[in-house]
Design a protein around this nucleic acid. Sequence first.
RNA 1: GGCGCUAUCGUCUAGGGGACUAGGAUAGAUGGUUCUCAGCCAUCAGACCGGGGUUCGAAUCCCCGUAGCGCCA
Length: 493
Amino acid sequence: MVASGRASSRVRFAPSPTGQLHIGGARTALFNWLFARHHGGTFILRIEDTDVARSSEDFYQVVLDSLKWLGLHWDEGPEKGGRYGPYRQSERLDIYERYGRRLLEEGKAYRCYCSPQELEDQKRRLQKGGEPFTCPRGCRTLSSEERKNLEAKERKPALRFRVPQGTVWVDDVLRGRVSFENKLIGDFIILKSDGTPTYNFACVIDDHLMKITHIIRGDEHLPNTPRQVLLYQALDFPLPLFAHIPLILGKDSSKLSKRHGATSVSYYREQGYLPWTMVNYLALLGWSTPDSQQFFEKDELIQKFSLERVGKSAAIFDPVKLEWMNGEYIRKMGPDELVDLLIPYLRQAGLIEESIDSTAHQKILEVAGLERERIKVLPEIVDLAGFFFTSDFPYDPVSVKKRLEKDYVPSLLEEARLRIQALSPFEEESLGQVLRRLAEDSSLSPSEVFHPLRVALTGKMKGPGLFELAVVLGKEEVVRRIERTLEMLKNSF
RNA sequence: GGCGCUAUCGUCUAGGGGACUAGGAUAGAUGGUUCUCAGCCAUCAGACCGGGGUUCGAAUCCCCGUAGCGCCA
């Protein structure tokens, strides 16, 4: 099977702007992009927006933005141009019409005058009998006189492809040779009565005109492929190579669709996932290396990717593993890089100023260093580390009850306050010594000292090391927070 | 209803006749490290859809079922 591409490989991703770019579409785009980059070929973006009712300019923009965010930049397409444009099908209607006329003149297509309602009825009727589809009026064999009659009634015809007899063989890079009986396909519409092309027709013409060599697309198109192959043959176009990649399914194992909710690329972008996490995770849905490698850098992924190692069975999208992977990538990141990503979220939460001086930056850097192993998605930084930036943080009731509302705590905090105040220098090591000494002097275990103090300083039971976080807060602030906690306890008892 | 695709731990997967007491990742459980959480380390539990063949030998090849999914302006 010829799955290897040459430098002249041309592949495309052809989304419909009828919704957000979803995970499945992104994965298809990714495999095409990887294939092109691996072989030094060309990655083309084509917009299939002939369905005017469902397509929108907003979605068009979202799809482009999502692809860019993922880093799947196209070589030809909207905003980029290219020799084979236009790259939006809505701007290519005259082309489809031309080819439609050609097939009509060659007798390979005919006008069909049946109404949608008639066709619907016919379909239901035939479905029961298990018969292949034929159009109810027998438009296939209409005489010119009958045709004239119908046209006089102003009924607009659709253009239907005359499927020849025989068997179509589809050679698929991943699935081998699949056969379909022509007579079961039935003459299908190529141009609707309003003049817009059907998916199969527009797709074939564009793929040919854009010189696509490898059609890598979702499995759901495999049943469409024999129709397309028939069109290639009728139009005398050379066949490209097909590769139908497995679908991505939702938790309920039905096709992952917009209905599943959190399935759009933009959603994960907003939720604070890193673009490369998405790419890496998506690559692993349906593709793997012999050693099941989990992490790839960009160049490495391009270098290792191959169609041959794409699996055949559908995969369920697992947000839990995606989250894990995002956490891993956050931990791998350099501190400066992480800080840049965190700042927008801290700003949005009103925890830091618009402008950040070097002191502030330094503090964020330290906080990032302390919290990085806990962050799985970027916005978590707000809940995790809010207390570093504001004294007005919430006290978790459970933590207060469990760690602060004890008889020994007020005197302990009072003593801690005094000793910390006297402490100089205020460093992790010296603070640790002081607090351990305090435990000893009070006949308490270190934990009995650390835990209440942690809640006093952060409002929570969980978080970074006590000494580390205290040093970042600074002595003054630590003392202030202890005082405030004492005040709070006095009032509640 | 017809046609098509697919079928290994809950999930993502490795495996392409003997190296399989079926490997890795994730999620789960347990223990260790530690002031908590997270992380890290160690350990455990967990799968070849069913039935027939082919073969000395089948997760791997073939057939039939079954199930899931997809397509049929």
